[in-house]
């Protein structure tokens, strides 16, 4: 890489200012600047040499996008996007200006909420009480303790926790979908039975959260819900056809 490398954080509409005090990736943190081209602007900084996915840099990337999201529509770049120089950034913006503008206007007023469902952390007693198979295996261990029996019991507990969470996960997805403009499945995360992102009107963010919270309270024995948001619209900027528009959203 040459010394001119440019780390690209986001594309925003022209005329939108940088959030005051925000800094970029690298140590010491690189200063943010804007590269304008027509009606769109790229938020960039110098790219640190030997950039990798370190905690500090991931957080810096996320923080810049989060701050930008607070002030207007943003096309977040995937972490670690580097252009050879300002000129190539300008050329790209010029080439794809219409497309970028269209996506920005599509996202206007929207934020991403990400929901993950995990097997309930507090549900062991409920699983033993309600799952026949687990009860049977537990009795077997008691009668004849041993390694094999314990593995079978543990496996059954693990499977039951996952299954119960997946069932409840389908229910919450059904409840939340009408509150969103679009949904997009997230990458598979191990340990999660559900990972899905919602494009939600900023003004409906509170009711989205409240709905999640109520559901989490009602289904403590089945799943643990983790909601993150409002986030930059990471999951709604690609042109891959995996997003699901929501009727009437």
């Amino acid at each position: 890489m040459s010394g001119n490398d440019v780390y690209v954080y986001a594309i925003i509409p022209a005329g939108q200012a940088l959030p005051p005090g925000a800094v970029g990736v690298g140590s010491p943190a690189a200063a943010l600047r804007l590269v304008d081209e027509g009606r769109v602007t790229a938020v960039v900084s110098a790219a640190p040499p030997q950039l990798r996915a370190r905690r500090r840099d991931l957080m810096a990337h996320q923080e810049v996008l989060q701050r930008l999201t607070d002030t207007g529509p943003v096309l977040p770049m995937r972490f670690g996007t580097v252009a050879p120089d300002d000129e190539s950034v300008r050329a790209q913006l010029a080439r794809s200006q219409a497309e970028h503008r269209a996506t920005l206007s599509h996202l206007r007023g929207g934020v991403e909420f990400n929901l993950k469902a995990l097997p309930a952390q507090d549900a062991l007693a409920a699983v033993v009480a309600e799952e026949k198979n687990v009860r049977r295996l537990r009795e077997a261990v008691r009668r004849r303790p041993g390694y094999e029996a314990n593995v079978r019991l543990g496996e059954a507990v693990s499977a039951a926790l996952s299954r119960r969470a997946a069932e409840a996960g389908r229910k919450i997805l059904h409840e939340l979908t009408p509150l969103a403009r679009e949904t997009a499945p997230g990458p598979e995360v191990h340990g999660c039975v559900l990972n899905v992102s919602f494009l939600v009107d900023r003004s409906r963010g509170d009711s989205f959260r409240t709905t999640v919270q109520r559901f989490a309270d009602r289904h403590r024995d089945h799943l643990e819900l983790r909601v993150a948001g409002p986030l930059p619209c990471y999951s709604f900027v690609s042109s891959r056809p995996q997003r699901t528009p929501v009727a009437g959203g």
């Binding site: 690209v8 594309i11 950039l51 990798r52 996915a53 905690r55 991931l58 957080m59 990337h61 996320q62 989060q66 096309l75 977040p76 770049m77 995937r78 972490f79 670690g80 996007t81 580097v82 252009a83 190539s88 790209q92 794809s96 991403e112 990400n114 993950k116 997230g186 990458p187 995360v189 990972n195 992102s197 983790r226 909601v227 993150a228 948001g229 409002p230 986030l231 930059p232 990471y234 999951s235 900027v237 690609s238």
Partner: peptide
């Protein structure tokens, strides 16, 4: 917005990709 861990896979696997720019390993 949750912890970094909660959004890690979004930061790493989602977001816009532009072919002419490179991505770090």
């Amino acid at each position: 917005a949750g912890t970094l861990y909660d959004v890690l896979e979004l930061i790493l696997d989602r977001g816009m990709v532009i072919d002419v720019f490179v991505r770090v390993s």
